[in-house]
Design a protein around this nucleic acid. Structure first.
Lengths: 99, 99
DNA sequence: TAATTTAACTTTGCAGCACAAAGTACTTTT
DNA sequence: AAAAGTACTTTGTGCTGCAAAGTTAAATTA
C-alpha cells in the first residue's frame, strides 16, 4: 500500500484555507467582507490567508468600486480549482478508508 | 448560513494526524513501526503526534513484548472515534459544498 | 563479551504558522 | 469636524511541524 497522506496538499491544511477555497469553488468573485462574515475571522487573519493563496496563484483578485466604496473580490484560479479538487479527492479516499 | 468551518476539529488538521486516525479507525492496535512505515515519517515526528493524540485521549497505548522484543501499539479510543467521525462529517459537508 | 542493532522514544533547535490586536490610508457618511 | 467603513499591513506572541541527534534497554551478532 502506498503512502496515502502524500496526496494531501499542505497549503490546504488549515480550516480557514479550506473554507476560503470551498466558498470560491462555487462562487465567482466573493468580496472580502462576505468571506470575513462567512468564516468569522479577523481582518488580518483573512488577509494573510488570502495573501498566501494568492502567492500560490490559487486565487485571483479583483479591485473595483461598488458605488463609491472600494470593493475587493476574490475568485479561485484554474490552477487553484485543480489543486483543491485533488486535495478533496485525497480527503475522500481517506474518509472512505476510515468508514 | 452558519459558519461551516467551525465543525472541523483543529486537532485533526495535520496530514500526519489525519493519517494516524484514519489507520486506527479501521485497525485495532497498530504498532509504532507499522505506522511509521505507512506514513513515511521520522520517529520523532510520529512520536510527537501520537503524544498529542494521546493527551487528548483520542488514542490509547498498549505496551507488550512480541517474542522478546518490545512492541508498542496504538488504538483509537471511543472518544477519538467519535471526534474523528465528526471531523470527517464536517469535511464531507465541505466537499459537497465544493462539488 | 564486546560491539552492533533494534524499538521506541526524548530532546533540541529552528523556521514557519495562526492568530489577535492595533495601526494605516483613503473615503464616505453623519 | 468626527465617526465609520473597507481592506488591508504591522507587530508580537505563542504554538507546530519537522529533522536530526541523543537516549535507554534489550537482542543479536562477532
Amino acid at each position: 500500500m502506498k503512502n496515502f497522506i502524500a496526496d494531501l496538499n499542505k497549503s490546504f491544511e488549515s480550516r480557514v484555507r479550506l473554507g476560503i477555497m470551498s466558498i470560491l469553488m462555487v462562487n465567482d468573485f466573493v468580496d472580502f467582507g462576505t468571506l470575513k462574515e462567512q468564516l468569522q475571522i479577523t481582518d488580518g487573519n483573512l488577509a494573510s490567508h488570502i495573501n498566501a493563496l494568492e502567492k500560490l496563484e490559487y486565487i485571483q483578485i479583483r479591485k473595483q468600486f461598488v458605488g463609491k466604496k472600494p470593493n475587493t473580490s476574490y475568485a479561485s484560479s484554474e490552477e487553484g480549482k485543480k489543486a483543491f479538487t485533488e486535495h478533496l479527492i485525497a480527503l475522500e479516499k481517506l474518509i472512505k478508508k476510515s468508514g
